[in-house]
Write a protein that binds this DNA or RNA. Structure first.
Lengths: 155, 155
DNA sequence: GTATGAAATTTCAAGCTTGAAGTATATCCC
DNA sequence: GGGATATACTTCAAGCTTGAAATTTCATAC
């Protein structure tokens, strides 16, 4: 009788390799985006993310909800929003009926700034992912979608 | 004459979607890894990365080289190595013939600790990427490999 | 109405990360 | 040799991130 080795040894190694590659690609792309946001818009990726979330809800979001959507801690959002307020891109609004909560929304200037950055952002991504056809993109997207890690509502 | 619209509009959107999905998956996986390293080994992902790089070179690496391989800034490596030295996982060694440079290498304890973490790490990845067959992993890997963003030597 | 617990948010310490500035040493060139 | 330049590294300020500990306000149960 032969001793049964773990069945998935080969696929385990292959998955590890895939993970390392995904990590390297995303870090590289993120680094590019971060640098361009900094140089061209004097902004950052976290700020961009918050603005993107707010942009979808013209009436604003509670800090709560913002933190949940972005999947970052509450305390983290506090700091980022604070800087966005300083930038004049975002405003805090008292929520009627619950003095614990705050509503956060883009200012008019914030909406303008975001629109401009978002256009550039899409272009950068498009260039950085050059070489991935529409079909490939769709295909990889489907595969990733099956992962336990891909749980969420953002489109 | 019709005005020519940008040819790649559809694939641009598809690429953006792919990017957002990749970002979400990698962040999710990273968050899991970070938490488990913290809870089970009282360590962090950056420290794990440094140890992984050092593990391949028993003779040690210059700070220089470490920073280049990990693709992070010099100053960053300084801090991480400092904490690893405090942990007793890593040691600094003066380099003969160049008093500017320092060699960094794993201690015996560091090697043992890394071996244990690396095994767990591979298992975690394997579980988190469950659902990706060996073929799929290989296929996605190949696609990612074609990206401009995927430039590098790590296997 | 009041205590008790839940909810929304902020504060905090620690660590990671970067880009820029600073220090020390090495190398090059005359 | 000696001055200029390059290399290896550290320091620093600013920002991001987390988990844990406050703080304030709300809701619920008696």
């Amino acid at each position: 009788m032969t001793v049964p080795l773990p069945k998935q040894e080969a696929s385990s190694k292959e998955r590890l390799r895939l993970w390392l590659r995904m990590l390297r690609v995303t870090r590289q792309v993120e680094a590019e985006l971060r640098e361009r946001l900094r140089l061209e818009y004097d902004s950052t990726l976290p700020r961009f993310d918050v603005m993107a979330a707010l942009q979808r809800d013209p009436d604003g979001l509670k800090m709560n909800e913002l933190s949940r959507r972005l999947r970052v801690s509450n305390g983290n959002v506090t700091g980022i929003v604070e800087r966005l307020v300083d930038d004049g891109a975002v405003e805090r609004i008292a929520l009627e009926g619950d003095r614990r909560a705050t509503l956060v929304r883009l200012t008019a200037a914030g909406r303008r700034a975001f629109a401009e950055m978002a256009t550039a952002h899409e272009g950068w991504i498009n260039a950085l992912l050059d070489g991935v056809s529409e079909d490939d993109a769709h295909h990889i997207g489907e595969l990733l979608h099956r992962l336990p890690a891909d749980t969420g509502e953002t489109t």
